[in-house]
């Protein structure tokens, strides 16, 4: 509930007032708050989508008088998300999301502004998708048991969006640091794993964990190897060409990787050249696939070798 309200605090005051009166058990199940200009405010849970009526009640139907999001709401929410400092979040806005304290991530879209062929900014915010960050201490215990059953070697967590990859990685970092006493370096490009605010990690990633917040993954990995002598490097959403080069360099230095990618099955990995190259780096001894629709649940473990 606290996390939900904290995430709502980054939205406009009118929306915050409407959401703060919702029942506690429902708030706990909300994973996304979606704001679209002139459209009803929708709350996405693992069971489906719910809307807020004009009187503040929850409904699954679209034919009633619903609480609509205005452009003023979007503007206010956008300014709040940027902490009234757009310049401070230019890169985030160009990438399409803003990570706020608490690890919540707001996807933002509108009219793109290009300069030199690249998105440099955005005007007229059209919508915001606030993803409520979760932290379940202990949820990665079975993953750690599975990944390090035989030896301490790297693993790649694979799953569709909203399968709990980041949540698992976060808890995995904590377990490796506090229970396995490993030196962990988290390369947190988007600030989702540790949710660093003013230099302090707000999520529990363990006492032996160093967080490289906001670093581009490839640069962060190399810096961690150079300066932090980690046993394990944890990073989310690997897949770029530079990431692969950085992973190879780190593996050559004897570092173990715990990383996550968007992939639902082995075919998916084989069909995506960059993911296939990543697996072929030798940094991962296991591919652990997560169940869709059931967050943080392991569906299949594949040992890397042969075809991979």
């Amino acid at each position: 509930m606290k996390r939900f309200l904290k995430a709502c605090g980054f939205l406009s005051k009118r929306i915050y007032s409407a959401l703060s009166t919702l029942p506690e058990d429902f708030c706990r199940r909300v994973c996304e708050i979606r704001l679209r200009a002139g459209k009803p405010l929708s709350l996405v849970t693992f069971d489906g989508c719910m809307y807020l009526t004009a009187t503040g009640r929850l409904t699954g139907l679209l034919n009633t008088q619903l609480f609509a999001v205005t452009r003023a709401d979007l503007k206010e929410s956008f300014n709040r998300l940027c902490e009234y400092s757009v310049y401070s979040h230019s890169n985030d806005i160009a990438s399409g999301f803003i990570t706020v304290s608490g690890g919540h991530r707001a996807g933002v879209y509108g009219t793109a502004v290009y300069s030199g062929g690249q998105i440099t900014g955005m005007r007229d915010v059209g919508g915001i998708n606030m993803r409520v960050a979760r932290e379940f201490c202990g949820c990665a215990q079975s993953l750690v048991n599975e990944a390090f059953k035989s030896d301490f070697a790297g693993f790649l967590l694979c799953g569709a969006p909203s399968t709990g990859k980041t949540t698992l990685l976060r808890d995995c970092a904590r377990i490796m640091s506090d229970s396995m006493f490993k030196k962990v370096a988290v390369v947190d490009e988007r600030g989702e794993i540790a949710a660093v605010s003013h230099g302090e990690a707000q999520n529990n990633v363990g006492v032996n964990t160093d967080v490289l917040d906001g670093y581009i993954k490839s640069q962060g990995i190399l810096q961690a190897v150079r300066t932090l002598s980690p046993d394990v490097i944890v990073c989310d959403e690997l897949g770029g060409e530079k990431d692969i080069d950085a992973v190879i360099s780190a593996v050559n230095s004897g570092v173990v990787f715990a990383a996550a990618v968007h992939a639902t099955n082995t075919d998916d990995i084989k069909n995506k050249p960059q993911l296939y190259s990543l697996v072929k780096t030798g940094a991962f001894s296991k591919l652990i696939f997560l169940k869709s629709g059931e967050p943080c649940k392991i569906c299949e473990t594949v040992s890397v070798g042969g075809d991979f």
């Binding site: 300014n79 009234y84 230019s90 440099t120």
Partner: peptide, 10 residues
């Protein structure tokens, strides 16, 4: 106008 634009604008 503070905080409403990117770094160059500010």
């Amino acid at each position: 106008s503070f905080g409403t634009t990117d770094t160059a604008g500010q």
